[in-house]
Design a protein around this nucleic acid. Structure first.
Lengths: 243, 243
DNA sequence: CGTAAGATTGACCGCTATCAAAGAGGGTGG
DNA sequence: CCACCCTCTTTGATAGCGGTCAATCTTACG
């Protein structure tokens, strides 16, 4: 279920685009971190592997001692209400940070959607480290801003789009993650279940299936298997009223 | 419509609670900024007054040269889709930062809901300033994290709650802003229209009115005037499945 | 080969978007 | 000072999306 492991080359990457165009070209889609900076960060962190799907990484409400950097795999961050409903607040992909806290407790739970590898930073140490490393702190700041944009995009989708459109946007978002989308065949391998998708886009698993039917009926996707979809990305974008 | 003005005492405050309990007590609900730090920031900024409701502060898509700190008043950040629908992504209250950008352009538009006063920071200068002032940068980082939490809370509401519950949450959020809520009488003065509320909680103005009826029918609120509501906060919280 | 989890389909109904129209205020010009 | 107008708010009627319950199909796995 859980094992510690060694760090590999180039593992420590933070996925984010800066709000302003970079002056001295950032690596596309990632925060610029020098080898030395990566090493400094690695020294603070512990590497942990979660090898089975559904593994709990942390639980909503627990004392939040750590911040997590996802190196490999997919993680879902979910919030459970008293009524028992679950809302998935975000899916995390390699290069994403998670472990949002308030008053020292995790706001959401995190579970492995696929087997995954994370770097785990003790927040107290990380906090001190960042204050004495302004350029790295800037990277974390940029990541946070990136996360705000992501959440707001999702908010717009939830507020203004019907289920088929929300699904279209979700599929397009997924297709941005190379490891799960093959540009040659345009086939997306979805790592999560219909239930996960439903809890993310604010609907039910049945409605996700029906929305898949809608998209397929319009020729925007083709179901190879339930978890493998051929996407017509341009048409999906047009359908979702995006550019 | 727009005027420049002088800075006043204690105007520069950033509203945010840190994810971890403060070690050396932060001013409740605000980032700790020393007088010197405030002065340094003020030196970067220009003060601008927007005196009429509905004033454009900036427009979605414009080059994003500035970051804004709201000193006084209420601002709405909205995103307009091709279809013409508007989603209000956030309401900003005194102490909030706004001006989210991507690729150097504003992602949303900002308009004054009430007359308001803002500090306007040139992003290039601010960016450089923050890198050489790690403790202030930390404040901005904490604010960004705070903003992520806010967006996620809204996301949960949109995904899992019906309109009356979303409205209840919205009213409770508003009641957290002293200037608009009188603890003695428990009366909330709403600065925005039904349309604004609707576009924020993802519904229509008509449904906002109906949701007001629902809440009033259950005795959770009482309409003094359309814009002045007496709140039963404990009951509202219970109704919204919050604590 | 049996079982369980995931995916799909169908039926039904409630919430809420939409269209339409009527009250309520507040501000402005006569 | 008053009447008008425009915006905001409210109410009513209707239709449709999508939630829910139930059952079936598929697939991976023990």
């Amino acid at each position: 279920m859980r094992r510690t492991a060694q760090r590999e080359q180039g593992d420590i990457r933070i996925r984010a685009v800066a709000p302003w165009p970079a002056e001295h070209g950032e690596e596309a889609g990632h925060v610029e971190l020098s080898a030395a900076e990566q090493a400094d960060l690695a020294r603070l962190a512990e590497v942990i592997l979660f090898e089975t799907e559904g593994s709990q990484i942390f639980l909503q409400g627990q004392p939040a001692g750590f911040l997590y950097l996802l190196a490999d795999g997919v993680v879902r961050g979910s919030h459970t209400l008293h009524a028992g409903d679950r809302q998935i607040v975000a899916f995390y992909w390699p290069g994403d940070l998670f472990g949002l806290a308030q008053a020292g407790a995790y706001v959401n739970s995190a579970e492995a959607v696929t087997p995954c590898k994370v770097y785990r930073f003790p927040v107290r140490k990380l906090d001190a480290f960042l204050v004495s490393n302004p350029s790295i702190q800037r990277g974390f700041f940029i990541k946070a801003v990136h996360e705000i944009r992501t959440a707001q995009r999702q908010l717009i989708a939830m507020g203004r789009f019907d289920v088929p459109r929300r699904l279209a946007i979700f599929l397009l978002d997924c297709s941005g993650h190379e490891h799960y989308f093959d540009p040659a065949t345009q086939i997306l391998s979805i790592p999560m279940t219909r239930y996960d998708i439903a809890d993310y886009i604010g609907t039910s698993a049945e409605s996700v299936t029906r929305a898949m039917n809608t998209l397929e009926g319009r020729g925007l996707i083709r179901r190879v298997t339930p978890r493998a979809l051929e996407l017509k990305r341009a048409d999906l974008k047009a359908f979702a009223d995006l550019d």
